[in-house]
Amino acid sequence: MNLTDLKARNIKLGGKPVADGTVSGLRLHPGDENGHGKWLMRFTSPETSKRRDMGFGTYPEVSITEARKSATAARELIRSGTDPIDARKANKQARSIDAQALTFEKAARQFHADNKPGWNNTKHAAQWITTLETYVFPHIGNRKVDGLKARDFAEALRPIWLEKPETASRVKQRCSSVMDWCAAQELIGANPVGVVAKLLPKQPKIRDRVVHHPAMPWQDVPVFIEGVLRTGNPSLSKTMLEFLILTAARSGEVRAMTWDEVDLADCVWTVPAERMKANSEHSVPLSGRTIEILEVQKKLAKHPDLVFPSQGGNVPSDMYAPSSGTLIFLTFFF
């Protein structure tokens, strides 16, 4: 019968090994306490014709499924004429050589290249590697990853730890991600970045260091709209800003808004998931005034797709200059 978790959990200290029943030679040997064991597979080496025992870790840390998977891979090597223990040693030695040759900068750039396709925000992807180039590579970029200690990362972060705490925290997290990647590749034993904060001064609490942008009291918004946005020469930035205020949308969502997202009949603007920060489709109800703004933009017909095109027919930047020369920063209102 095949080994089950119930049988494995009932293995007794000093008892007999229990055969897996699925992979030939795989057995769970009793461990140092009840319910714990050690995975071993007995096989005959195809290279020396000698019997050998290959270990696959301990139960329950290594599950039955994981042990079977590893043992099956080992059996495949045996069938191909390779001793799996010798192959594992050779692979470990190769990884050790890789670790000795791999610098932190090379590891970081490889991690960045591997993960960049999964990041939706191109700005974040660029900033991710730029911060390491600025603050970390000059200190430890050419150091081998297997020789890096917590104090090395602490010294790289120290110049910005108190002066730029937000940046320092992000850089620390990115260093940790790189070293986690190295650990997963078995290039290092453990990630040293987790204890870096123990070697540095305590950072001020977030509430003590965050400086919020000044905000307009909501009671003053109607006066602002009437006295600033609807007076003087009309401009694209004034129109976008009023629309932004009325819909509580982000500037990027408004600037890149397209006509196929708008349903004037049902008074709904549907922002697709790929344009939302949360990657989830969002429906925005449109008030009477927002409908008026859209109808005016529709009549202007300056672009077949964009609702608020720039003079060049592109998505306006987040800092748009109206004809009066006054700069209105759309991102300021978030």
Rank of each mutant, 00 (worst) to 15 (best):
229 L>F: 14
194 G>E: 07
173 Q>L: 08
157 L>H: 05
305 D>F: 05
66 E>I: 07
293 I>H: 07
3 L>K: 02
108 A>S: 10
44 T>W: 06
61 E>C: 05
186 E>R: 14
27 R>F: 11
115 N>D: 03
186 E>Y: 11
51 R>H: 06
245 I>S: 10
214 P>V: 06
241 L>V: 09
317 S>W: 04
322 P>T: 15
36 H>Y: 09
55 G>S: 12
15 G>D: 08
80 S>K: 13
212 H>W: 06
16 K>Q: 15
75 R>E: 11
139 H>T: 15
264 L>W: 05
169 S>A: 14
83 D>Y: 10
246 L>G: 09
129 I>R: 13
108 A>H: 09
56 F>R: 01
11 I>E: 08
236 L>V: 01
21 G>L: 01
303 H>F: 06
153 F>T: 01
166 E>V: 15
62 V>K: 01
200 L>K: 06
243 F>V: 05
290 T>I: 14
168 A>M: 03
217 P>I: 07
160 I>V: 08
204 P>G: 05
218 W>C: 10
320 Y>Q: 03
142 N>W: 00
147 G>Q: 04
198 K>P: 02
295 E>W: 02
289 R>D: 10
11 I>A: 02
180 D>C: 04
38 K>E: 04
117 P>C: 11
101 A>P: 00
312 G>M: 11
7 K>E: 06
106 K>F: 08
